[in-house]
Design a protein around this nucleic acid. Structure first.
Lengths: 174, 174
DNA sequence: TATTGTTATACTCTATAACTATA
DNA sequence: TATAGTTATAGAGTATAACAATA
């Protein structure tokens, strides 16, 4: 059996503190110089704004962006191994352990022993996870649309496509 | 006089560890479900890829994205106060202190007492900072272009414009 | 010998709160 | 009383390295 994790000392679920004020991507009177023209800095600015919106909108669910990504990946890929999840999310295995712990504390995910590999475990949604995920997804899609509503549907699709190419993969077919 | 910071115990300059492998924004065989269509997740994926490229390309300079942003902002806005820098970067003042400390350790920035407000201090580049910044900018622009070379100049401009609107500010005039 | 999940450790980064000096 | 910079503290997040169980 893999090493057991101890009974958690902290039942509280962490949620990042909401900053007093929002990030201002363009402070008046400040000269941003070369930053304004850099793809990287522009992506970063948009990502910060997105992140803040996400955390605020999902605060009542105690769901952060990494938790949401994990939930969706787990739900769409049954019996995913922890190592595979870490790979998909681009984090270390030790980080995935902490992430799964928080989702377990929320009652959304269980570790199921793999029938074929006694070292491994499959990640599955709990009944509560199955029940709540649709509403969570709806809330996330709604906030995503709220942020993107300044763009036409065509522009949104174009943005996704351009970003996908920058990230180095084929844009999704929509 | 503002409280003095103690002589630093660690002269070493931190640089984030290079991950063994690169982040794979689209792992084969994995169903990303709703994530593929979300602006937020797409922005995040691109941002991770960008960040990794940046850190690797600027490793020899010991320059991270936050350090670079701070250097550019300081160089373009003479006598910027620490609190203003924190506001521009969207971080707490305590974080700005640590950031400036690292840039001071690198020999790029100095704290200059403000002539008008004896509480405040102006941030300025050192001669070494003035001397090295152009090459650093050149390296950053080069890596930015390398990541973005899959897009035509027009597409790049479009991406910057779309991201600026999503972030909630007027796109820069190029 | 390699891999899986876990733990231990170390580090940055973030934030809040308290403190000193000055306004 | 408010603000500027600093420090202290605590939290999440990242990572690497080592470990036990299993392949």
């Amino acid at each position: 059996m893999p090493a057991q994790r101890p009974s958690k000392a902290k039942p509280e679920i962490y949620l990042p503190p909401a900053p007093e004020g929002h990030f201002n991507p363009k402070v008046p009177g400040i000269d941003y110089g070369v930053l304004d023209g850099l793809i990287g800095y522009t992506v970063r600015r948009a990502q910060i704004v997105q992140y803040e919106h996400f955390v605020e909108s999902l605060a009542s669910w105690n769901i952060t962006p990494p938790r949401f990504s994990a939930l969706v990946i787990i739900s769409r890929n049954p019996s995913l191994k922890l190592t595979e999840l870490a790979n998909v999310l681009g984090i270390a295995r030790s980080g995935a352990v902490a992430l799964i712990n928080s989702l377990e504390d929320l009652g959304y995910v269980v570790r199921v022993p793999s029938p074929t590999d006694r070292r491994a475990l499959g990640l599955e949604l709990t009944p509560k996870g199955e029940q709540d995920l649709p509403a969570i997804i709806q809330a996330v899609v709604a906030q995503d649309q709220r942020v993107a509503q300044c763009l036409s549907p065509q522009e949104q699709q174009q943005l996704v496509s351009l970003l996908a190419r920058v990230a180095g993969f084929q844009p999704p077919q929509l």
